[in-house]
């Protein structure tokens, strides 16, 4: 009895904390310390004899002042943000009709259509990025199709190596991320709500605007957040499909600091800036999402 008495509280809790310990240790070692370390590194500088461990804001001032015109890192950041917003909007715009169709128009095999829509998510990133090179390249499918059909006589270079091709590829890559939460959100809209709206004399268009659109906003925002955050940090699609300088994105600058330019502290500073921007986006969109979900609950 004495033994069991001692066992029941402390030991049990101790064992349960023991279950969490490996995760906590792992996260501290390989996530929290690395992130903090990166933050600290961003205040150091690269000297002739390696990294100077002295606190300075040099990297951050450099970020805002160096370069000229569109080459300024801050301008690249804004350009990246612009491209990412375009990608987000496009992913939402093309997801909507598909999700709407599966949810409200498909009667049989809904699950099958849904699987069909999200399978591209499981196709390797590199394959999806690279496939656009086959399609858009100078000797690629699109150009040879245009020549074959006689629309043009010479291949058009502009398809590939431009912001346009980067955007197309990113939209293609990030659409399933938007599709899934949007589908879940729309699936939860009670069908009778829509019928009720029609019963009350609201036309299709008004039902769509007054009922369907507001109710799917939380799902749209969740997906949009993913698309925006992931495009902000994508340095591979620009590398593979973008032009030599015109489509350099902010993450490419970071990548260069850890590669050819070999200025880690500066790269760290830019990464911290990206981190803050992404965090801001996630927070703002998260707040909006909460706001709209509350509206939704209130409406039920």
């Amino acid at each position: 009895m004495e033994k069991t008495k001692k066992y029941s509280y402390g030991t049990k809790r101790f064992i349960q904390f023991g279950l969490i310990a490996p995760l906590v240790i792992w996260l501290v070692l390989f996530l929290i310390i690395p992130y903090l370390n990166l933050f600290v590194n961003s205040f150091w500088t690269n000297g002739v004899f390696g990294v100077q461990h002295k606190f300075t804001l040099e990297n951050y001032t450099k970020f805002f002042t160096s370069g000229s015109g569109s080459n300024k890192p801050i301008m690249v950041l804004l350009d990246t943000l612009r491209i990412s917003v375009i990608v987000m909007i496009c992913t939402i715009l093309i997801s909507f009709p598909l999700v709407y169709f599966i949810n409200f128009k498909v009667k049989k095999n809904k699950q099958l259509f849904y699987m069909l829509a999200i399978i591209p998510l499981w196709v390797s990133y590199i394959m999806r990025a690279y496939s656009w090179r086959i399609i858009l390249g100078t000797n690629g499918m699109l150009n040879s199709f245009l020549i074959w059909s006689g629309i043009t006589s010479k291949p058009i270079d502009a398809f590939l190596y431009s912001n346009g091709s980067v955007i197309i590829a990113m939209v293609h890559i990030y659409t399933p991320f938007v599709l899934m939460p949007m589908y879940t959100a729309m699936e939860q809209i009670p069908k009778n709500l829509i019928e009720a709206s029609k019963d009350l004399g609201c036309g299709r268009i008004r039902t769509f605007i007054k009922v369907l659109l507001p109710l799917s906003i939380p799902g749209v925002l969740t997906g949009g957040t993913y698309a925006l955050a992931l495009s902000m940090g994508d340095f591979l699609a620009p590398n593979l499909l973008g032009g030599p300088t015109s489509s350099t994105k902010i993450s490419n600058i970071v990548q260069m600091q850890f590669g050819t330019s070999n200025n880690w502290p500066y790269g760290a500073a830019i990464a911290i800036i990206i981190f803050l921007v992404v965090l801001m986006i996630i927070t703002i969109l998260g707040k909006l999402e909460k706001h709209f979900s509350k509206l939704e609950e209130a409406g039920r």
Binding site: L31, Y35, N37, A229, G233, V254, Q255, F258, A271, F275
Partner: peptide, 9 residues
Amino acid sequence: LPGIITGIS
């Protein structure tokens, strides 16, 4: 977060 941040961290 974008993988690049985790990567360089």
